[in-house]
Simulated scan of single mutants.
Amino acid sequence: MLVRTVKILAWAWLIAACSLILIGHASTWYRGGSAALEDLFGPHIIANSIAVGLTLAPAFFLSRLARGLQQKNRGKILLSSAALVVSVAAVALIVLLPVTLEGNKSKAREYQAQSIRVKDGSVAMYQYKDHSLTGPVRNEGTPESIQIGDVITINGKTIRAQHILVKEILSDIRYGGQVLGKTGDTQCVITESPEDFPPGDKNAERDRLWIVVEKCDPIAVATH
Rank of each mutant, 00 (worst) to 15 (best):
N104R: 03
I50C: 04
A51K: 00
I50K: 05
K7T: 04
Q127V: 09
L84Q: 01
Q71D: 13
R138I: 01
Q112M: 08
K129P: 00
K7H: 08
T100A: 01
W13S: 06
A35R: 06
R109V: 05
L78I: 15
S27K: 00
I15F: 12
S122R: 01
A16M: 14
L69V: 03
A10G: 08
K72S: 15
T100H: 07
L97S: 09
I46K: 14
L22P: 03
P143F: 14
L37W: 10
S122M: 05
D130S: 02
T28F: 00
D130P: 04
S63D: 10
T5G: 13
L40S: 04
L37A: 10
L9R: 02
L14G: 00
R117E: 08
K119A: 02
N48Q: 13
P98D: 11
V123A: 05
P143S: 13
G141L: 10
N104G: 04
K105M: 12
S122I: 03
Q112G: 03
S19C: 13
K119I: 09
A16H: 10
K119F: 07
V137A: 10
T134N: 11
A89P: 07
G149P: 15
Y30A: 13
R64Y: 09
W11E: 08
L69P: 03
G103L: 11
L96M: 08
K119D: 02
S19W: 12
I94P: 09
V137S: 10
E102T: 05
S145G: 15
K119E: 07
I21H: 00
K76R: 13
I23H: 07
L79G: 10
P58N: 03
P136R: 02
A51C: 06
C18L: 15
D130C: 06
R109H: 10
S63E: 09
G42T: 11
D150C: 05
V118C: 07
K105Y: 08
S122H: 07
I116A: 00
A83Y: 06
T100F: 03
W11G: 14
V52S: 12
G68Q: 04
S81I: 13
I116T: 03
R74S: 15
G149H: 15
L37D: 08
R31M: 14
S27I: 01
W13A: 01
A92S: 09
A108W: 01
I21R: 07
L54Y: 05
R67G: 07
G53M: 09
K105A: 11
I94C: 03
L40E: 06
S63L: 13
A47N: 15
I15G: 07
L101F: 08
L14Y: 02
L93Y: 14
K129F: 09
H44Q: 13
G53C: 06
R4G: 02
Q147M: 04
H131E: 03
I23K: 03
A26G: 01
D39H: 02
A82H: 09
Q127P: 01
L62M: 02
E140R: 11
I23D: 00
A10L: 01
